Simulated assay, not measured.
Amino acid sequence: MLKIEQHHNHYLLRTRHTPESLSSDWFDVAFWQRQNAVVTSKQGRAAAWFVRYASQQVAVLKHYWRGGLIGKVLKDQYLFTGLKNTRVYLELDLLTQLASLGLPVPTPLGARVTVSTGIYRADILTDAISGAQSLCERLQSAPLPSQDWQKVATTLARFHHAGAYHDDLNCNNILFDDQGKVYLIDFDKGALKTPAKEWHMANIERLARSLKKEASRSTQFFCTEQDWQSFIDTYQGAMTKKPA
């Protein structure tokens, strides 16, 4: 359940994990830069800023950007048809539900929706995953141990058993933390659905395409047919069992 705060030109969305001190300023990178609290950033279309909001806690701040041809024109502008229809509300609400199911996702901290003349822009804040390294980054540096492929497969099976649909399952959205636990991130356009083999397989095919794409543009990429078959075998075995 999200708590909604309405202000003059924006909404703040809070979860049960939201720090009490969270304010609209938290969604402006300049606010963190003034405090020398920006730890690092990842640039690109889906840029993310890592900011230290407490002595031992780092959050990931992301702005919503459009993709495709329309993104070249509207960039970060979306038609506002009600707060609960915004992409950020839907993602934050989904993350809250997934976290309550015990699934390994980033802890949702809050979001901001700024509205002006029927157009909205949005930002989301989640806890950073400690020592996170993506599946893609791991495969670019060394072969992945078979037990780690199995972790990815069984983790994905947990999400699928729960009906958790990921709209863009790729090797950059699968993370290992510093203890080797596997997480899924970036649930924009995701949903909770009735489990069905059709969309389960579509998820897996999308992951396969992303691995091939990264392999084609990396100077080294340690992913073999045997690795993939092991992943598929483990996933299929996990899907035949009742979730733990």
Rank of each mutant, 00 (worst) to 15 (best):
Q150W: 03
K181M: 10
A238G: 11
I232C: 14
D233I: 04
S100L: 09
Q56G: 11
D127C: 12
A46C: 12
T15H: 06
Q56I: 01
T224M: 06
R138T: 06
A132D: 10
A59D: 07
K197P: 11
D148E: 14
D167P: 01
Q179R: 15
K242H: 11
G68P: 01
R52A: 12
T234G: 02
R209K: 15
Y183T: 05
H166L: 15
N36E: 14
N36R: 13
I185H: 00
L169Q: 03
V73I: 15
A48K: 15
Q179Y: 08
Q33P: 02
H8C: 07
S146R: 13
A157T: 08
Y11W: 14
L2N: 07
D167Y: 12
R206F: 01
S216H: 13
S218I: 00
A153H: 13
R138Y: 03
A37V: 08
K62G: 01
Q133P: 00
D76M: 01
S146L: 10
H10A: 09
V105L: 05
L79A: 10
I70T: 14
A111N: 08
I204K: 03
V39Q: 13
A208K: 13
S24F: 08
M239D: 02
T18C: 02
L211P: 00
R206P: 02
Q56C: 10
Y64M: 10
R14D: 03
L144R: 09
L12T: 07
K193M: 11
T114Q: 15
L109I: 09
A196G: 12
R14A: 11
V182C: 05
K3W: 09
T234P: 00
H161R: 10
L83S: 12
H7N: 13
G67C: 07
K3D: 13
S24D: 11
L92H: 12
V115A: 05
P106C: 03
R112G: 03
L156K: 04
K242W: 03
D123S: 12
T154P: 04
L83E: 09
F222M: 03
L94Y: 06
G110E: 02
D76K: 00
L139D: 00
Y64F: 14
I70N: 08
P104Q: 10
S141G: 12
D93H: 13
A59R: 03
H161T: 11
C136T: 11
G68C: 06
L169R: 04
P106M: 07
V38L: 11
S100H: 10
A59V: 08
K42Y: 08
R34G: 10
V113C: 06
A48T: 14
V182Q: 04
I129W: 01
T194H: 11
G131L: 06
G110T: 05
A202Q: 15
